[in-house]
Design a protein around this nucleic acid. Sequence first.
RNA 1: GGGCGGGUAGCUCAGUUGGGAGAGCAUCGGCCUUACAAGCCGAGGGUCACAGGUUCAAGCCCUGUUCCGCCUACCA
Length: 886
Amino acid sequence: MSSDLIDKSYEPHEVEKKWYAYWEEQKLFSADETSKNNHFSIVIPPPNVTGVLHMGHALNNTMQDILCRYRRLKGDNVLWMPGTDHAGIATQNVVERKLASQGMDRQQLGREKFIEAVWEWRAESGSAIINQLKRLGASCDWDRERFTMDEGLSLAVRKVFVQLYKEGLIYRGDYIINWCPRCRTALSDLEVDHEEQEGLLYHIQYPFPGSTKGLIVATTRPETMLGDTAVAVNPDDERYFNLPGQEIVLPLTQRTIPIIQDRYVEMSFGTGALKVTPAHDPNDFEIGMRHQLESIKVIGDDGKMTIEAGSQFEGLDRFVCREAVVAMLKEQGLLVRIEKHDHSVGQCYRCKTVVEPNLSKQWFVKTKPLAKKAIEAVEDGRTRIIPESWAKTYFDWMYNIKDWCISRQIWWGHQIPAWTCQKCNQLMVEMDDPAVCDSCGSKELVRETDVLDTWFSSALWPFSTMGWPDQTPLLKTFYPTSVLITGFDILFFWVARMMMMGIHFMDEVPFKDVYVHALVRDEHGKKMSKSKGNVIDPLEVIDKYGTDAFRFTLAAFAAMGRDIKLSESRVEGYRHFINKLWNAVRFSLMHITENPGAFNEKRISLADKWILSKVGQLTISVTESLDNYRFNDAAASLYRFVWHEFCDWYLEAIKPVLYGKKGEEEKAATIAVLWSVLKDTIVLLHPFIPFVTEEIWDKMPGTHGSIMKAEFPGGDKPLFQDPEAVSTMEMITGIITGIRNIRGEMNISPSKLLTASVQTDDGKKQEQIRTHQEMICSLAKLEVLNLSRTGDRPKSAATSLVEGMVVFVSLEGVIDFSKEEERLVKETGKIEQELSTVQKKLGNKGFMDKAPEDVVQKVQDQNNQLQEKLQKIKINLEKIQELQRS
RNA sequence: GGGCGGGUAGCUCAGUUGGGAGAGCAUCGGCCUUACAAGCCGAGGGUCACAGGUUCAAGCCCUGUUCCGCCUACCA
């Protein structure tokens, strides 16, 4: 076979396209919902339909794909459930922007038409991210792709809502919630991003009635004073003992408000007097509840002041109003002072608008009872969180969980199945739309317009995607799922809530393991963001370096519990690896022209046994690593094996055999081993780099069908292991490396053939060296390799010590001896240093008495070896010095 | 305020029950040796943040200090 059958370098683009289409066509990603085989299931963290693939998705899905492909090779029945999330607010924003560009808004369009427009939009561009996942090689069972707004999933949402309502775990009420004035909707606590900002603390005088004196309160938001309904002081505060029960004048208004006592007030902050605005501050709301204070809403849902704020402020934007209030207070001499004050400001996680705490009627999930069971599940290990440190974070949040505001005042989402009777105000929550009021029989029913938080439907994902509420075969086979792979940023948003819902509705945890991976950052460790301009687009990386190189990079850097700093140059490095592999295959396939069949264990060479043992160890290491989510360990073993064992040693060692220098029989045996090793290696690599391995598989003689159907190395048979061959090979490679050291350090040209000898009295080693002297000669570029006994030594030679043997490289006509002297002096220094630490241990009575025997023995052996080594090197040093003198 | 993670070679990072400090990249020297110059052969480089402690033995365990990230929280 000539090399023109395989290109000199690997070109990913066509290969990737070809094989992905093939896999899909052959239905190789399909799960069998009835199979009794060991099953393995993952539900994808559904990306937003609005989304484009970013680095986080790439990492997350690469890991899932590695596990799924690995388990398929192991023979498991694998379900990787794909789908997307309707992303209520985000999607609505996108479509609204589109409308705006056409000079329209959703109000003009009306609810129904607007929702139609969203569906249209989804039909156009909603599959973008799915196609991007495919480019990543994701082996999801696409025929089962789900969407949170699908009919089936919507039914699940409704069922869950109705049941929770009937169980008293969902309620409606007037509470203070986070309000985004731009999105015009309520947000849950999690949907508010807090950011530390420089702000101002305004000290304002509230006068006593008919007095110029008064109390000074401090606030960062002066505009809210218009809605104050009390001033609170701490009951222990001696300064204000006589005040409670009195009233105080609220400036800029006609109102007087009471002075109350509440332990919430921090005496040390400001003046110890707190203005209370129950309608616009969560704490003040609590205080208001305790003291039955009136709530006055002065900021409207649009972020502008209401009529309650007073006619001079009505209609002003809340921040404009702040300036106006401050100016007016100043005018009236009531602004005592302004201090700089850093505080955290809540922003809408979708649009960054400053969130307004606002009183309104919303729907909530009572989370405590649900959280309790979700905590227990992790405590007793039904669900493992990996790495374990995240369990603590999970517990902290779960223990301090607050009720979850689930209603959103947008249109895109699952409309809440609640109806209010216009006659008697009866509230009905039902599976089937009610026609008449179940209390008064009126037909005047009005449906709740709010929709549910997107995360409400995501919380059902592990079972809603499998057909729940129907008891489908899919659900029976694959729930609970084997593992959830996710970033820590949605641990609360999503994982915690899936736990609560899964346990409540399925009576079983949604996943056995939760593997929490890190975030992908830029090369300086900064979060990638569009505004910083440091975003690396995964698709560009794929275009430039190929999917496999990219995936391998992600796997290699995916150490547990640490962020991944990614830069293009790293991907480039792993492209080299893919190319190295490609070329190793190219070389191998020049010699493997047909299926060589099984090798005969009795006929194979040392190098063969060694590489077979190594591939066996590799198999164990990859298996263990993947079973424990140690993707980086698996990637590292594969990298080291392919490059530094298979290419650097094995292929080099068998070249003379392949070139026919050892006869046809040995050549055939070696080719059989080469084929077998290559096959196993490619299969082990496949989960990480699916495309290039499929391409190689296709080109290899003796393979059939897709590599996805291949058998994992070993199968049921024990893996090949030959420890003796491994240690012999290590000795041989040690000798070769010793000779290469000398060559390299003394700048002897690689093309110059040398003469060397190995000095040992060990008969077995002599025998082995003799047997493998051709390999040594070829790899160390020797003309002659001699064996000698102690005492024999060449006249002028450089020396190297290997496993108690002395390797001499003849320097006749090659060298200046001062260089060799330098080498040996340096070497002596190293050995002496090692020796001193070893001897310190041996001289330590405590160590000798208390250390375990095997450790002591090991140190003693080291000591002996080092002593011997030192002695030998000293002899050679003397010789060299003699030679120089003569 | 609370919590978590991190500080190991020039850079990015591994280091799984405590027992001879590692990799990749970069650097330096030598090679177009017929699969691969996206390559080959060799070399140099570390007070494992700092200070204590436990131990025969600490990068690893404990305490404190410091610096850097992140998460979380109702001091207006």
